[in-house]
Design a protein around this nucleic acid. Structure first.
Lengths: 141, 141
DNA sequence: CTGTATCCGTGGTGATACTG
DNA sequence: CAGTATCACCACGGATACAG
């Protein structure tokens, strides 16, 4: 019996509320799509994997060591999600032991620019953010 | 008795793993900070609130109606997090009934650009992403 | 009007063990 | 080597009720 739905859905499609609506590219209708991809970008490991693959194509365990801190399970899930979105490609060489190479697709590469802008913003402003957090946390001890 | 830790922590500081390390702005050390802010940006409501406040300053319920779909609880939590990060300001006018105005800070405004680049990317590429997802989901029925 | 308190389901994440 | 299976923890988000 299945007690954990999250695990049961593992192999299936990720169901982040697709609107299905292709019309209305106007700010309101597309908001779902933007929020949706923002959470892909914002999840714990996706961008770290994309960054590492941005440098060069890598194999599974190579990536596992490169990302540091990621579990095998999470690496697999992250890779599958990115693959599903068309951001990375997965190439299997059926030898023994098997060899699987992951690489950024052109779409994946094109995401790199916008993400870097955001990263740059964070780097430039993180001391201000840290300061704000400290101030917020320490007032009214 | 407290049975739900998440709720118990509600009033306290958000503990998204601060490294505390202010050194090493090099790509590796700052990765945590970037991932951290990426998840703020990627959470379900933050950017929608920032967008709405980008248009103009708003009051609590005004915002509640503007965002659409957000619960009172989530709006409060989102606003508190954004305030803690220094992205929005909260101004209380102690009348009865109380009036609270929220507005973007300069820091909040500066985030708007990078986020828009990413949003634009999503809008430009979302059909390709949708197509990739469909292809992924329908193969090997 | 602007919140807080409480309860609860769902799902994201990690640890560990196992497989081809 | 590159995964899958299983279990368990707890954070996220919604519903509802209550308060200043």
């Amino acid at each position: 019996m299945v007690t954990n739905l999250a695990d049961a859905q593992e192999g299936t499609a990720k169901s982040r509320r697709h609107t299905g609506v292709t019309a209305v590219i106007e700010a309101s209708g597309a908001c779902d799509a933007v929020t949706d991809m923002l959470s892909r970008v914002g999840d714990k490991w996706s961008m770290q994997v994309v960054m590492k693959l941005g440098e060069k194509s890598r194999r599974f365990n190579e990536l596992r060591r490169a990302v540091e801190g990621i579990s095998q399970r999470m690496l697999t899930r992250t890779l599958r999600n990115l693959e599903r979105d068309g951001l990375i490609s997965r190439t299997v060489t059926p030898t023994v032991p098997p060899r699987v190479d992951y690489a950024l697709t052109p779409l994946g590469h094109s995401l790199w620019g916008p993400v870097m802008r955001l990263s740059t913003w964070v780097l430039e402003n993180r001391s201000e953010i840290e300061a704000s957090r400290s101030a917020y946390d320490t007032r009214e001890i």
